[in-house]
């Protein structure tokens, strides 16, 4: 290794130059990119832009289709309630943007491969905006997807990332399971059972006390005395 990378001041300059090139290369690449759609299609860059405006952890991106129709998606938490997210999609097209149906999904990685789990659907307003609320059940970085579902829509799905910092686990499970019958008597039943157990123990202790303590008082004229 040292044979091909000589030591000394010259090699230090060489390494500094190399490092500068590595750091500058992506910036140059972005700078040379002239298409706004291509710029928007990079989720990392979109994420950086939105993170400054929403809680500092929001990442959003939009996927552009062939111009002029574009669907974008952004995710933000409600103020003072990090467990309640609002997913807002925005449709930009040359035709009428209102009344279009948009489906929202969260991408779950709990299965063998990522799957879109439906959150809900909403109709776009006249300005092309549609939104749904969502209470995340898992913390961590989540991927959200919005798809235009109106017939004939050719707009590709929009994707956004959001780092969930607070979640409410289990609401889906609780909602899917109806209240158990007689669950209201749980505490009463517990009290009754414990009382029965306590009474049994009390009864057994009384018997022992009676056998050891009370028995001598009942003595008199028995077999034991006679046999003595």
């Amino acid at each position: 290794m040292s044979r091909y990378f000589p030591r000394g001041p010259r090699s230090l300059c060489y390494r500094a130059l190399e490092l500068a090139l590595v750091v500058a290369a992506p910036l140059l690449a972005v700078g040379l990119c002239s298409s706004p759609a291509a710029f928007a299609s990079s989720p990392m860059i979109g994420m950086t832009q939105e993170s400054s405006s929403v809680t500092g952890v929001t990442h959003s991106a939009s996927t552009a289709a062939t111009a002029p129709s574009v669907l974008t998606l952004s995710v933000a938490a409600r103020p003072h309630d990090p467990t309640d997210l609002t997913l807002v999609s925005h449709l930009q097209s040359s035709s009428d943007n209102g009344g279009k149906s948009v489906a929202f999904f969260v991408v779950s990685t709990q299965f063998k491969q990522p799957e879109d789990v439906p959150i809900g659907t909403a109709k776009t307003a006249a300005d092309g905006t549609a939104s749904v609320s969502y209470k995340p059940t898992w913390s961590g970085k989540e991927q959200f997807v919005a798809k235009l579902t109106s017939p004939g829509a050719q707009v590709p799905a929009a994707t956004a990332y959001y780092r969930v910092t607070a979640s409410t686990p289990g609401p889906l499970y609780a909602a899917a399971n109806p209240a158990r019958p007689l669950s209201f008597i749980g505490h009463i039943f517990l009290g009754v059972v414990l009382t029965i157990v306590a009474l049994i123990w009390l009864g057994l202790i009384i018997m022992l006390v009676a056998a050891v303590g009370w028995m001598p008082r009942l003595a008199g004229g028995g077999i034991g005395r006679r046999d003595k």
Binding site: M215, P216, A219, G220, I223
Partner: peptide, 16 residues
């Protein structure tokens, strides 16, 4: 302790 086999003792023991 105290067992003498009296009828009262037998009765109590039998009941218990």
């Amino acid at each position: 302790r105290g067992w003498e086999g009296s009828p009262a003792q037998h009765r109590l023991l039998g009941r218990m």
